[in-house]
Structure formats: C-alpha cells, structure tokens
Design a protein around this nucleic acid. Structure first.
Lengths: 203, 203
DNA sequence: GTCTATACTCGGATAGAC
DNA sequence: GTCTATCCGAGTATAGAC
C-alpha cells in the first residue's frame, strides 16, 4: 500500500536535469549537446535521463514549459492600468530583462531553430506567445482609447512587432550593455502619434 | 603548358554548391544538413564537395562571403546625401528586403548559432557588420548635424541598434506581410528628437 | 529507480580507381 | 576532377542486471 512513486521527487529530478540541460543547450547548441553530456552535468546516467523524459526533444521542451505561468502572471499584473503606455513599457522591460544574460541569447536562438522541427514545441511556445500578444494588444487598445497611442495602429500587429523588437534585443545582446534605454525610446517612438504638424497642445 | 585549372569553372561549381547548401541550411539547420544532402542537391558526389571546400564549415562560410561587397556597395551608394534620415531608411529597407524570403529568417538564426563555434566565420561577418555600422553611424552623424536626429544619440550605438531593428523584421516575418511600414515608423520614431513639451515650432 | 553495456544508425572525411 | 567504397567516431535509445 506504500506509494510507489514520489511525485515530488520526480519533479525535483526533472527540474535538476532541465536546469543543466538548459545551460548546455544555450552554450553549445541543441545538436552539439549529447544526452550523455546532460546526464554527466546532472550527475546521473544517460539511461536515467530517458527515464524522466521520453526523448531528447522532450528535455528541451521542458525548459519552456515553465514560461507560460510566468507570462500569465506578467500580463495579469499589468492588465488593469490607467497608464497603458507605461504598462507596455513595463511588460517589455520585464521580457527584455534577461537579455543581458549571455546564456539567454543562445537559448532564444536555439528555440527559434527548434520550433521549425518540433511540432510539440510549437504547441508549448505558442500558448505563451498568445498570452503575451493578447495582453499587449489589449494594452495597445487601451492606449488608443486614451489617446496616447496612434489609432492607425492595429493592436494585434503592433503587439507582435513589439515582441519581435524584444527578441531582437536578445540577439544583439552585448555584455555590460543594457538595451533598456534603446528599447524604451524605440517603443515610445513607435507607439506615439506622429504629431502631424498641428495639434501641439490639447490641455 | 595549357592552364591546368579553369578558375571560372571552379567559381561556378563553388557557387552552385553554395546555393544549394544555403537552401538546405536555412530550412533544415546546419547540423541536420549532411554533406551528402548538399552533394545530392547539387548533383555531385560528397567527395566533390570536399574537393571544392576544405570542410563542411567552409561551405557555410561561403554563403556569407558575398555579403561584404554587397554591403560596401550599399553603404557607398548612400554615403553622400543631403537627406540623411531618408538615406538611413533606404539602407535599412534594403537590408530588410530579404526578410520576406522564407528561409531568410532561418538563415539568420543559423548564422547567429554558428558564429559562437566558428572563429573564421566571425572574421567573415564582422567585416561586413563593420562596414554597415560605419556607414550608418556616419549617416546618423550627418543627421545630427542637420538637426533631424536627436543629438543625444551616440552614432555608433544607434547604428548597432538600427541593425537590431532590422533583425526584428526577420523575426517578425510572416508570408504576405511587408515589414517596411513598421520598420520606417519604428526607425523614424527612434531617431527623431522627442519634442519635450516645449519647442513646437522653430521657424 | 538507477545503473552498465550495447545495438543500431548516421555523418564527416579520406583513399584510391578512373 | 569526379567518382565509389569505406573507415572511424559519435550519438540516441534500449535491454537487462541490481
């Protein structure tokens, strides 16, 4: 009658393997990281990795499964605001926070590479992306309604573009240099109405 | 006494192999593309590939070797202008032109991945990047001098950031969607002085 | 549950004939 | 120059002992 498996122990083991795998994938790349490498880093045997994961691709997917709750929390935290543009900047800054981390850049690159070959990975990341896109699009709509954002923008398209800009900060990450200033300046410049010659003040 | 090798023929063969390799690398990825795949696509044997290239990595590098003259021509064509902001937009539009090509996104990702493991590839692409950065930085300086660009911007940093925005168009590429509108809007918004409350007119 | 050992496949690169 | 044939190393995944 004793419990056969300790789900908490399993979760810890998976977490441990996932952590080491993430480090290796981000630095060496997916194909150049062998399961033996992961097992060695995690202090287990290759066979144990296959006990906790169905195959190598599943190890990679596990890294991104925890992004969904984080994205939901981020969006929820800024859903109700009276300053939509500031909220957008906060969300994007949070997303770009890790850009300075040298491994994060490599991880994004590997992700972009892998999604083309792993349909299950697509399912994992599109859910996260949809949450972010939806949240950002809603904020863009609020900004338009408040008159702070150019009404000619399509909210969904703008949200996708803003995320692409954040991704670009990862790709062009340089050590010791935070992209936050450029990011803020770019985003505000993109969202703000172009002030076509004449309506300078309205208060 | 006849010439033993026909350099033009060699160039054509290399070009042919490079072309097919580029297609395969961009869709399947570097590691998942075997030399046998490239040879088959080019209609030659694997051994012939190694006759024209020292190894697989050299085939990949060859794809980017022709970018340097293109970059030099692009920069030279816009070096002397009286409308620096328009020139910058032209240069960036040209760079983003290929973003519509499906596969171009994959190629960018593969490149970013490979540079971390191939020092010779770094040498190839940094020369191209330096040409572009130098040309763009010069245009930014001219724009500042002309009063069209915010003087608080650092030309070199701005040039690097502009290239990051071009990368974003690749990441945001979707079939049937031209990135040029977002690109123009984003770049002008970034470069233009922010008009801080009070100096609406100056003529 | 975790290990050792291994079956099986595949890819890069070379040798040598023509 | 271009081919066929092949060597060698590596990597995923599994079988089965403990």
């Amino acid at each position: 009658m004793g419990r056969r498996v300790d789900p908490e122990r399993v979760a810890r083991k998976r977490e441990q393997i996932t952590l080491e795998a993430g480090r290796l994938f981000s630095t060496r790349g997916y194909e150049r990281t062998s399961v033996a490498d992961i097992a060695h880093a995690a202090g287990v045997s290759p066979a144990s990795v296959f006990y906790y994961f169905s195959d190598k691709a599943a190890v990679f997917r596990a890294i991104f499964e925890r992004d969904l709750p984080a994205a939901e929390a981020l969006v929820a935290a800024h859903a109700h605001t009276e300053t939509p543009v500031a909220a957008i900047l906060d969300v994007l800054s949070a997303l770009a926070r890790d850009a300075a981390d040298p491994g994060a850049s490599g991880m994004l690159v590997e992700l972009l590479r892998r999604v083309e070959h792993d349909p299950e990975l697509v399912a994992v990341v599109t859910r996260t992306a949809e949450v972010l896109t939806g949240g950002l699009a809603a904020l863009v709509e609020q900004g338009i309604a408040a008159g702070d954002i150019d009404p000619s923008l399509d909210p969904a398209a703008a949200a996708a573009w803003l995320q692409a800009i954040v991704d670009a900060t990862y790709l062009n990450a340089r050590p010791g240099h935070s992209p936050l200033v450029e990011l803020r300046r770019t985003v505000t410049g993109y969202l703000t109405p172009p002030l076509p010659e004449g309506d300078p003040q309205h208060d």
